[in-house]
């Protein structure tokens, strides 16, 4: 136990240094776009970037937990769509006041995400299956369920207060982004200041050792996937509030953006190394690139190529980090 705690302390300190490098990369990008484009640093554009990264950030927070234990969750985009249509169905029930509807919808959406995550965790941990396959299955189940529930139709027309919430600004900062930031803070506390968090890192480093130390690895793994499902549920609520629709085809490919954010943020795909602050910065690098390259007037195809290059460079850097760490 003491051994594991020590190791994760070391990694936590190290990961702050690692995040520092990513922070510099982000800063360079920001400086570059501020110089080359006219509007990048305008307050409007900053508001835009913050609301554009919000959903990916929320998904990436949950994804960080799963990747830290050496897993992967391919289902988050579909689970988000499923949670959104469940919440959409709840919010368009008749005979209730707006406050009740919003409450029920939020609970229903979060519960839908929670259950999908729980299933991912229980199935992959109990039978020790590759999470890649289990969550690929869940990707199909959740998407199919979302389409089935809605007959492939988009749900729209929500209570006014709910629609308002999605575009509410607090001194120019989207409130939904503040929600995401609060989640980052909670995740940071959980991962760096609790025994639970340290054990997650330890599982990513050496699952067998954690098991031998007498911990119920199964429970921790299930918890990581459940957190990831829950964040997909939260992302669904934010999606609905921002766009005022629940679409069963929402979120296709979002899992890949979330994974990219986590990886660019320096979390190792093999688990045990990384940080939530890195994820925050990684998500911002993707968001700033997408925004800045449009402002520069670069074509969509170039934009996609550059994002791809950034992902690969991040993984190469991670390779060297892993080498120096050992």
């Amino acid at each position: 136990m003491t051994a594991t705690t020590k190791t994760s302390h070391k990694y936590s300190a190290k990961s702050i240094l690692e995040s520092f490098g990513i922070g510099i990369a982000l800063l360079l990008l920001i400086v570059f776009f501020s110089v080359t484009t006219e509007h990048f640093l305008s307050s409007n554009n900053i508001t835009n970037i913050l609301s554009q990264v919000t959903i990916n950030l929320i998904l990436a927070i949950g994804m960080t937990f799963v990747i830290l234990i050496g897993g992967i969750d391919l289902s988050v985009g579909s689970v988000m769509a499923f949670a959104a249509v469940v919440a959409g169905k709840a919010i368009s029930m008749e005979g209730f006041g707006p406050a009740e509807l919003i409450t029920v919808a939020i609970i229903a959406g979060l519960a839908a995400g929670f259950v999908c995550g729980l299933l991912n965790g229980v199935i992959s941990a109990y039978w020790a299956l590759p999470s890649f396959i289990v969550t690929l299955g869940m990707l199909n189940i959740a998407r199919g369920a979302a389409l089935h529930i809605t007959d492939a139709r988009t749900i729209y027309s929500f209570p006014y207060a709910f629609e308002e919430f999605g575009s509410l600004l607090f001194y120019g900062i989207p409130v939904v982004f503040l929600v995401a930031l609060a989640l980052v803070f909670i995740a940071w506390v959980v991962l760096t200041r609790t025994v639970f968090g340290r054990i997650l890192y330890a599982i990513g480093n050496n699952e067998e050792a954690v098991r031998l130390a007498g911990h119920r690895v199964f429970r921790y793994k299930v918890a990581a996937y459940t957190i990831c499902g829950l964040t997909a549920g939260i992302a669904a609520i934010v999606y609905m509030a921002r766009l005022n629709i629940s679409s069963p085809i929402a979120g296709i490919g979002f899992e890949l953006n979330a994974i990219a954010g986590v990886i660019i943020g320096g979390t190792s795909l093999s688990g045990g190394r990384g940080s939530i602050i890195g994820t925050l910065l990684g998500v911002f690098i993707i968001g700033v690139l997408a925004n800045g390259l449009i402002l520069l007037g670069l074509s969509d195809f170039m934009r996609q190529m550059i994002t791809g290059v950034v992902i690969i460079v991040a993984v190469i850097l991670d390779h060297y980090r892993a080498k120096y760490a050992s």
Binding site: T37, H39, S42, N44, N45, N48, S51, Q52, I55, Y239, R242, L243, I245, S247, I249, A250, G251, I252, A290, N291, I294, L295, G297, D300
Partner: peptide, 25 residues
């Protein structure tokens, strides 16, 4: 002023268009 894909998708159109609007108010 500009022409870009959002892959038929609501969320992507929202992001891409907000940025286009910043570039071309």
């Amino acid at each position: 002023l500009d022409s870009r894909t959002a892959h038929w998708e609501t969320e992507e159109a929202n992001s891409v268009f907000s940025t286009m609007l910043t570039a071309h108010p």
